[in-house]
């Protein structure tokens, strides 16, 4: 199913991965989605907007190769091309790391706009990993977006914050401020979903969450052990061998690129002999 858009003019679509609440899986999702897009042949770059708390580099496994960062480019200390790190596994994938030290004010709207403009001329997808919160970093990550993936856990504070962020997406962004522009296409990515807990009424269902947020669903990512393994070794989960989470991310990526993939909720694994004999342990 590999498409080869490599010689076509770049699509130049900016996708923000955002959530409001911290620790819900934005960076995990940004890594998996960008690798998934690149795997399908799309020229893809993933940008870390979490100034001061660089982490995307570790999740992508390129932390030893960071020379220049996003802020170096904004401040003119390095050219964009020099700051981009080419992924060693997929030649269609690049990473733009964030600064570990510089202060957040260095992230100017003009600077971000200029960088995105240059990237749009070369890449099909520009995936922006937003920091948590709704402060400057998060605002900058979403401001120029064409699409938004709102990462949400089936849990009250996460859903509440997602609702808040959906409000910001439809009011505090370039598309919202430009009259006549199409609004940002926002979709929910439900992550850390645990079917077993849903089944016994301990966790809200997909429908519960969608009923509250009232935006389309991009996908459902199960709670999965494969995620920790992938982050341990610095490999986006879709490149780290087959797993339920990888499958779910691949499906979500296909939906992002316009394929009509049936929504399925993949479980972590079948219960092993031990569990069948002694009942569910976790």
């Amino acid at each position: 199913m590999t498409t080869e858009p490599k010689n076509n003019p770049p699509l130049g679509r900016v996708i923000v991965i955002t959530s409001g609440k911290g620790g819900v899986g934005k960076t995990t999702s940004a890594a998996a989605i960008s690798a998934g897009l690149a795997k399908q042949g799309f020229r893809t770059v993933v940008i870390d907007f979490d100034v001061g708390l660089r982490n995307l580099d570790m999740i992508m496994g390129c932390e030893r190769r960071v020379v220049f960062d996003f802020i170096n480019v904004i401040q003119g200390d390095a050219k964009l091309k020099q700051a981009l790190i080419k992924d060693k596994r997929l030649d269609t994938l690049s990473i733009l790391p964030t600064s570990q030290t510089r202060d957040k004010d260095a992230l100017t709207k003009e600077g971000v706009e200029q960088i995105l403009k240059e990237l749009k001329a070369e890449f099909d997808y520009i995936v922006c990993d937003s920091p948590a919160g709704i402060e400057r970093g998060a605002q900058m990550a979403m401001y120029f977006a064409d699409e938004a993936v709102v990462v949400t856990n089936p849990e009250v504070s996460s859903v509440r914050d997602s609702d808040r962020v959906l409000g910001l997406l439809s009011s505090q962004t370039k598309r919202a401020e430009t009259s006549g522009a199409e609004p940002i296409k926002a979709q929910v990515l439900l992550t850390r979903y645990d079917q077993a807990r849903v089944d016994i009424g301990e966790m809200m269902t997909v429908d519960d969450v969608l009923e509250i947020l009232a935006v389309p669903l991009l996908g459902v990512i199960p709670e999965s052990k494969a995620i920790l393994r992938a982050s341990n070794v610095g490999t986006p989960v879709v490149l780290d061998g087959p797993s339920a989470a990888a499958q779910a991310y691949e499906d979500a990526v296909s939906r992002l690129t316009g394929s009509d993939v049936e929504m399925r909720i993949v479980g972590e694994r079948r219960p092993g002999l031990f569990q069948r004999l002694f009942g569910r342990a976790s």
């Binding site: 030893r64 190769r65 960071v66 020379v67 050219k79 091309k81």
Partner: peptide, 15 residues
């Protein structure tokens, strides 16, 4: 300026 490309790879023993 853009014709110069500096890359680094940090290792345990040496970079």
């Amino acid at each position: 300026e853009k014709d110069v490309d500096v890359r680094m790879e940090r290792g345990e023993q040496m970079s």
